Computed example of a mutant assay.
Amino acid sequence: MAETWQFQIRMTVTPELADALRSREKCAQSDVIEEILRERDASLKCQYDAFADYVHEAQCAGPQHYPLYQWTKDTIDNPAKKAKYLKSFTVYVNGQEVYDREPADWLYARLLALACESGTGVESVNRFDTNPANNPQPPARQG
């Protein structure tokens, strides 16, 4: 029986578009993206915000219960990495961060088309799968 992997779409956008998407400010570029996402009950989460949420949750519940706490905290405290992750967004489908191939392929194709057009604010689009052989392992637990 073949393994069935799930998928995730991530995109990197310009700082200006990132600000609009994070603040839910309307602009032509964000409106186009939102229209695409609506067709698949999808939404975006800024990776920096996701990391900050994880750090906050770990600090409230006890960092010893969160194996990636120190790595994540170090990441969001690093100005260069913060700038990188403020521009990076994960696509969620039906509230899920990984999903079946069909919606992933559909979203990937449409968002990638935006990345190929100038002036859209979309710099890159990537598709990841849950196959461990294709993904880096988490960093070793730090202090």
Rank of each mutant, 00 (worst) to 15 (best):
Q64H: 14
Q64N: 10
Q64S: 13
Q64K: 12
Q64Y: 13
Q64M: 09
Y66Q: 03
P67N: 08
L68M: 13
L68R: 10
L68V: 07
Y69S: 13
Y69F: 15
Y69P: 05
Y69H: 11
Y69N: 07
Q70P: 00
Q70I: 14
Q70N: 11
W71E: 13
W71A: 15
W71N: 14
W71K: 14
W71G: 12
W71V: 04
T72V: 15
T72I: 12
T72C: 15
K73Y: 12
K73F: 10
K73T: 05
D74F: 01
D74W: 07
D74N: 15
T75R: 08
T75Y: 01
T75G: 04
I76M: 05
D77I: 00
D77T: 02
D77W: 14
D77Q: 15
N78R: 11
N78P: 06
N78M: 03
N78C: 13
N78D: 15
P79R: 02
P79H: 06
P79Q: 03
A80C: 07
A80F: 08
A80M: 12
A80P: 00
K81S: 07
K81N: 04
K82T: 14
K82E: 15
K82F: 10
A83E: 14
A83V: 02
A83C: 01
K84Q: 07
K84N: 02
K84V: 00
K84I: 01
Y85A: 02
Y85W: 13
Y85S: 00
Y85K: 06
L86P: 04
L86S: 10
K87S: 02
K87T: 07
K87F: 04
S88M: 10
S88I: 05
F89N: 02
F89I: 05
T90G: 09
Y92M: 11
Y92R: 03
Y92V: 07
V93F: 02
V93K: 04
N94R: 15
N94K: 15
N94I: 04
G95I: 00
G95N: 07
Q96D: 14
Q96C: 05
Q96S: 11
Q96L: 13
E97L: 07
E97F: 08
E97V: 10
E97T: 13
V98C: 05
V98Q: 09
V98N: 13
V98H: 07
V98E: 12
V98I: 08
Y99M: 04
Y99D: 01
Y99V: 06
Y99R: 03
Y99L: 08
Y99A: 00
D100H: 09
D100N: 04
D100K: 08
D100G: 10
R101W: 06
R101A: 03
R101N: 01
E102M: 05
E102R: 12
E102N: 04
E102I: 00
E102G: 06
E102D: 14
P103Q: 08
P103W: 06
A104S: 09
A104F: 10
A104L: 02
D105T: 12
D105V: 02
D105C: 09
W106L: 11
L107Q: 04
L107I: 11
L107M: 08
L107E: 07
L107N: 03
Y108Q: 07
Y108C: 03
Y108T: 00
A109V: 12
A109G: 01
A109H: 14
A109I: 05
R110V: 00
L111R: 06
L111M: 08
L111I: 00
L111Y: 01
L112T: 07
L112F: 10
L112G: 05
